[in-house]
Amino acid sequence: MARFVVRRLAFMIFLLAIVSIATFLLFSVLPVDPASLSCGQHCTPEKIAANRIRLGYDQPLINQYFTFMKGIFAGRSYGEGAQAFSCPAPSFGYSYYRGQCVTEMITNALPATISLTIGSAIIWLTMGIGLGVISAMNKGKIQDRVSTGLAIFGLSMPTFFIGLLLIYVFIIWLQIFPFPSYTHFLDNPFKWAQALVLPWFTVAIVSAALYTRLTRDGMLETMSEDYVRLAIAKGLPRRKVLVRYVLRGAITPIVTIAGLDIAVLLGGAIITESVFGLPGMGRLALNSVTDSDLPVIVGITLITAFFVVVANALVDILYASLDPRVRLES
């Protein structure tokens, strides 16, 4: 087991290095000059050149990459003398467009995104797995038809359309909610939840549909395993067979996918956040694209990739500790 963990973590670090290089190369094709963006109204070519040197964009790409990576671990300072300033570690660069360290902008956007992710994950896992279990236990009956019907309904609704529909129905038509304005949880938990209920469901409906299918198919497949047949044959109560044997066997792949989905969401739900105007990572990303704010785009891409790669590794390790076959295979 220890060997597996070490190997998996080594691969994780390797993948993170590759991801960071790929991101750097990819975005170096963008014809955006962060030095001129930062210059303001009274700009002269000399100022741009000075800025470029201050930001390090005059260096060859490979040097820029290493300075950037060093900044993540050791922090980074810009400029010299009276104009010097620094972004403490972990530094993902500096946005001249906003005059802020990228890390600071991301930290400001994270609470909204984390709130959205946790809330919607709870809803979609409960709804999705619940409907899936009901469906598998009553295969072919009316409960199964309703659940699978709901699932395909949810799968066929594009996220932005669900968002618009919920806004129309609950905010404009029924006026149950005011138009969402995000409030920090610690400032006012009630307003926080009020602003997030609709976005939670927007994200959850699509995902729940997928989990209903996964749970149903997984359980039906597990039901045809020999050990389940044995459990039935030795006369265990139906409930016990379903929970202890079938659901347990079917839940592992669901946990794997849930881990990844949550990691991806932590990188920001671009559509949901922009439809509802939530000040999270997704909206920050979209705004940065509009503003051509390159350092922020690079920062968010790397953070999201980091979440996904780490979640992937953790899930693999968890999986291996639960199921010895995985360890032996690789």
Partner: peptide, 22 residues
Amino acid sequence: GRTIDLLLAFPSLLLIISLAPV
């Protein structure tokens, strides 16, 4: 296999949006 791992790690929607103008 590693290429797939790499592609899955990227936030694809963000990349699609940010690379479109170029």
